[in-house]
Amino acid sequence: MKVSIEINGTTVSEEVEDRTLLVHFVREQAGLTATNIGCDTTSCGACTVLLDGESVKSCTVLAAQADGHSVTTLEGLHGDGGDLHPVQRAFREEHGLQCGFCTPGMIMASVSLLDHNPKPTRQEVRAGLEGNLCRCTGYHNIVNAVMNASGQEVQR
């Protein structure tokens, strides 16, 4: 089938198989490889993107389901001038990443989290990111990054 999905403000129209997963559509048809695949059971969240503004695991959405909808990936987060989104900036400032593989999904999940809860507590950040696994950071600095991005003081 032919699907048209607005990704980061640009509409991508491609012929795909019905079974094509959104994550593969984004990576292969749209050529946007920030979004990663870390598992095969919807556990890890490395593929998290925003679908009409809500965070979803794109490995568990069919491209067909996203037809006519809008998707934001990490590549679409910063402005045209290359200005970093506050969450992107904070991840670097707080050393919230190491290998960088969970980072795109983690940042998208954090953006969504702050959308719903602009001033979360540390515990709320932890609960809000439960769907995103990281093997490198032990989460501590990721929590710091989200607190930083929310404009709150980072209590280490």
Binding site: R27, T33, A34, N36, I37, H78, L97, G100
Partner: peptide
Amino acid sequence: MHRKEDARFIRGHGQYVDDVNL
């Protein structure tokens, strides 16, 4: 010192094996 490699990773511009496309 903040990491040099973060500049690409936070923008999704890391290049991992599955990103290689020939």
